[in-house]
Design a protein around this nucleic acid. Structure first.
Lengths: 169, 169
DNA sequence: TACGTACCTGACGTTGACGTAAAGGATGGG
DNA sequence: CCCATCCTTTACGTCAACGTCAGGTACGTA
């Protein structure tokens, strides 16, 4: 219920993560930002759900604060949204979603270390696997899109038939 | 698997339900056709699932045979397929699906009795409600289609970025 | 220092959509 | 008549994805 309460009046500059370089590693902000509560509020999922995601190895927060509380970074938040989208749009279960999310994580990972040592070979292989995973996802999204299109057309036809029965419009 | 399989070998004329008049009432065939087993086989759902659908008032078989066994008609089979589609494509739960299915049922119902007494007024009202329900469904399908399109585009962009990192491919 | 709030880790409960036996009735063939 | 199949109802089991306490901890503040 009372999951949300906008942290109105916090003097923190909100654009901490303009992130044009793509570094977002570790927990930057020290305040309530990035806490499980604020992430829950921002994403619309419950705290329990966030803890559950961690339980099943789907989303481990970027860091823990000294006290032991979870600290999510901006990339984590986006990940949560991605997860929900894969649930709602594609109907994937968390197992399937983990496969996708893992692929993206490894891609980001390889990208980061490629930046420092572009001697990739092993790295290139891993990256190509990751890309392949994303392309598999892409094709299943496309397939669903197609089927949905057909379904919509059929539905339109049925609606038209019924409308016609009642005299035009 | 085999969603569509012609009733091969049965001496019954397969076009029993070409249904240009729209009558399909009661169980016509006396044999194993229309039995829960054959319907399960044809649709790919389990017998338990069919019984469950009846339990929750989602799909009541057209009739029972003297012995007490369920007898599904051709329209029932299509309904099963529609139900599965709404599950898989739209992610609806059985409650939501029932709303849709009920609307269609009432539309068919009104259509049949309108044929015999087109004094509709009450009937017209009901029909318009049904059509409205289908249009609501249509718009939610469209919405999902749109979101899926956006999702696909974003996914494509991410794939392209990663591909580019590996040198043009 | 006491309080309130937000967080923590278990651990058990819930809900939807079935799966899986158990025990028995109908029916057609040999 | 017996048997094999297919069907019936009743009832308990399962699994994912959380919900919901309970009991304890960290921390800013009046």
């Amino acid at each position: 219920m009372s999951t949300r309460a906008a942290p109105a009046g916090s003097g923190v500059p909100a654009d901490v993560d303009a992130d044009p370089g793509g570094y977002h590693r570790h927990c930057d902000h020290g305040a309530g930002l990035g806490s499980i509560g604020s992430v829950a509020a921002r994403t619309g999922v419950s705290e329990r759900t966030l803890r559950y995601y961690e339980e099943v190895g789907l989303l481990t927060p970027a860091a823990r604060r000294p006290g032991g509380s979870r600290c999510y970074c901006e990339a984590d938040v986006e990940k949560v949204l991605r997860i929900r989208e894969l649930q709602a749009l594609m109907g994937f279960n968390l197992e399937e979603i983990r496969a996708v999310v893992d692929a993206e994580d490894r891609l980001d990972d390889v990208r980061d270390r490629y930046r420092r040592s572009p001697d990739g070979d092993q790295q290139r292989r891993v990256a190509e696997e990751g890309i392949q995973a994303l392309e598999d996802l892409r094709s299943s999204v496309q397939a669903k899109l197609d089927r949905l299109g057909v379904f919509l057309a059929e539905l339109d036809a049925r609606i038209a038939r019924h409308r016609q029965r009642l005299g035009r419009r």
